[in-house]
């Protein structure tokens, strides 16, 4: 690795171009750690997708049978499109629900309130997602709090749990605070004079939101959407404990295939397909976020 200093204007730093022990000390730990415990396991996962299972034990080899088998199974493709659809819906719903909140916090409250709101939005990130999902069970199940309340006014019972609604509530629990934070950060950085300029040129308030504010906050909005997609695409807690686990999503498929069926190579196939899907979506979104103009 050829090294140059970060501050090229500085004459003192300019000469230090060669690789030094000092530079290596700081740059190498992450490389070593992530190669051994992140990249290598993923490569290994890719390799075992070609291995075989005999007598409940994996045997090294090179056979495309797992790929062929998985790709020919209807349930795999069903799960694939379902997971993609769930994640897509979660992305759209979360982004839309988060936006008015982020907008209000960015433009309609004092900086002090905004700082506190930001802090409280970060809190849930450090609470157990499992416990939160379990709490929603208490609210959503057939004899749960919501249905008890509905019964009081003579409605229901509604099925709120073990369907996509339940799953979506879980995805929202996981993603909504994060998306609000990301959108808020982008919105708070929007240059207020540009909003005034839009008004000054006769652009109505709602129209300004769509014509000026959203384009200016594009990066945060896309980032929020990407995170929602990644998190809900890979999450197994919501579809399992709130969505009732059937029909399965890809992550449930992985768990079922490994924990009960011992079919590791096939789970590896699912995992690789998931990673490739996510990488594609991510690169496409980053490209969209940083593209110059719409």
């Amino acid at each position: 690795m050829a090294r140059t200093q970060n501050s090229p204007s500085d004459p003192v730093t300019k000469q230090r171009r060669q690789v030094t022990l000092y530079g290596l000390t700081w740059s190498m730990p992450i490389v070593i750690w992530q190669l051994i415990f992140f990249v290598f396991p993923l490569i290994f996962l890719f390799l075992i997708s070609f291995w075989l299972v005999k007598n409940y034990r994996m045997v090294p080899g090179f056979d495309t049978i797992n790929w062929v088998k998985m790709f020919s199974k209807g349930y795999f493709w069903d799960a694939y499109w379902r997971t993609l659809g769930y994640a897509g819906v979660a992305t759209v719903v979360t982004s839309i629900l988060a936006f008015p909140c982020a907008f209000a916090l960015a433009f309609k409250v004092s900086p002090k309130v905004r700082r506190w709101a930001l802090f409280f939005l970060i809190v849930p990130f450090f609470t157990s997602y499992l416990v939160r999902a379990y709490s929603w069970q208490i609210f959503l199940n057939d004899n749960g709090i919501f249905n008890t309340l509905f019964a009081l006014i003579g409605l229901g019972p509604f099925q709120l749990l073990n369907n996509f609604f339940g799953t979506l509530v879980g995805y929202l629990t996981l993603c909504l605070p994060l998306v609000v934070v990301l959108q808020l950060t982008s919105l708070a950085n929007v240059d207020r004079t540009l909003i005034e300029a839009a008004h000054n040129l006769g652009c109505g308030r709602l129209r300004t939101v769509f014509q000026v504010i959203i384009p200016l906050a594009k990066i945060g909005i896309i980032l929020g959407a990407v995170f929602t997609f990644i998190l809900s695409f890979g999450d197994f807690v919501s579809p399992y404990y709130l969505g009732g686990s059937k029909p399965p999503t890809l992550s449930i498929l992985i768990i079922d295939t490994t924990k009960s069926g011992q079919q590791w190579p096939r789970a590896a196939v699912v995992a690789i397909v998931m990673i490739l899907t996510l990488l594609t979506i991510m690169f496409a979104s980053v490209a969209a976020a940083y593209r110059k103009r719409a």
Partner: peptide
């Protein structure tokens, strides 16, 4: 950005 299930699976496999 890698789903935790996949991380878990890959780590355990290795």
């Amino acid at each position: 950005t890698i789903p935790l299930v996949i991380m878990g699976l890959a780590m355990l496999a290795l």
